[in-house]
Amino acid sequence: MTLTRKHIGRFGIAFLAAVAIYFLHGGMQAALWEPAFVTGWILLGGMLVLTLLNTRKKLPFLPLAKVRNWVKLHVYLGWFVVGTFLIHLDFNVPNGWIETTMAVLFVIVALSGVLGAFLSKSLPPRLTRRGEEVIFERIPIFMTQLREAADDLAVYSVEQTTSTSIADFYAERLRDWFTRPRDYFEHIMELGGRRFALKQEFDSMERYLNDTEKEVLGELRALAEKKSDLDYHYALQKTLKGWLFIHIPATYGLLALAVVHVILVHAFAGMSL
């Protein structure tokens, strides 16, 4: 992820637009107008346009601009809306329950958005670099396949070698690990500790095996590595989907409150629309 002149330029436009709002706000305030109504509507309008990204995604059959351009708009309009939000709040922490809840939700939406943008840029290349490309929904299927293959291999090893060392090693150290996705944080943080530990366990195990057993263990090691790769993809792909579980629900909560807020401020400020 490199910042190009294009990125900076677009961010600059968003920033300048926010500065314009700042002056609009200050100018109105200086003329004793209540700028919160204007910045509020701009803010709400901005948020609605941001939310329209979702609507656009639901209408793939209409020749509305490409989603990639919507996303660009989303990102930079997002920054603009963050600026407008701060101006709307006059750089203060709000007091009321509804307002505080809204502000908290906004911060959640904004931060999760920034986090999402970061994840969307940083995780895909990592997915490219490690393991086989798999469809997230199929990971349980592949995981089961790997576990069954490992189970079979353990049984096969007993048949072939008349020794239970590999089967025992598998049952004690690996079977449970094979059953479901593991090492989420390890993979997300790219720590690599588990991989190293696995390698060491296999290496030290190998020391006590004959050639036939070594071959079987080699196959088991391959399965384990595959499983680790699958875990890696599971962790990263889950994260890529996960941040939206914060971003989107919080957005709708925020919009619901925004409607209440708009009604209240207009009704109680004696300021007609």
Partner: peptide
């Protein structure tokens, strides 16, 4: 795949 976030929006579209 360096850009793809595996969102499946393409498939859904």
């Amino acid at each position: 795949t360096d850009r793809c976030v595996r969102c499946d929006d393409c498939v859904r579209a």
